[in-house]
């Protein structure tokens, strides 16, 4: 069970309180009506799924209930950073986020 630092509760809390919510930094297009098929495909279906650092959304659903973002290394399963929804991707040491 992971410990996840909630940027709103400002402490590490057990994974049981959280729910994963998919890839982060995919903004819903503001002009949905005008979106081409290709753009919709990119927005809705295509995910990066890298080996290494992912930026992903979590919700502290059984805690403060906030959605937030995290940078996690899928190889080591280590959280590199968590930050509030809407904040830009953090610079990670040497990773060039």
């Amino acid at each position: 069970m992971l410990l996840i630092h909630c940027p709103y509760c400002q402490e590490e809390r057990p994974e049981l309180e959280f729910r994963h919510a998919g890839e982060a930094h995919i903004a819903r297009p503001t002009d949905m009506a005008a979106l081409s098929d290709a753009d919709f495909e990119r927005f809705f279906f295509i995910r990066s799924n890298p080996k290494g650092i992912v930026f992903e959304r979590w919700r502290h659903i059984h805690g403060c209930a906030r959605f937030f973002n995290a940078a996690r290394d899928t190889v080591s399963d280590r959280f590199l950073a968590t930050y509030r929804a809407g904040d830009p991707k953090p610079a990670l040491d040497g990773e060039g986020a």
Partner: peptide, 13 residues
């Protein structure tokens, strides 16, 4: 509720 909170918090804050 989760779906609504998701949009409210992250898309339409």
């Amino acid at each position: 509720l989760n779906h609504m909170e998701d949009y409210l918090q992250t898309e339409f804050p």
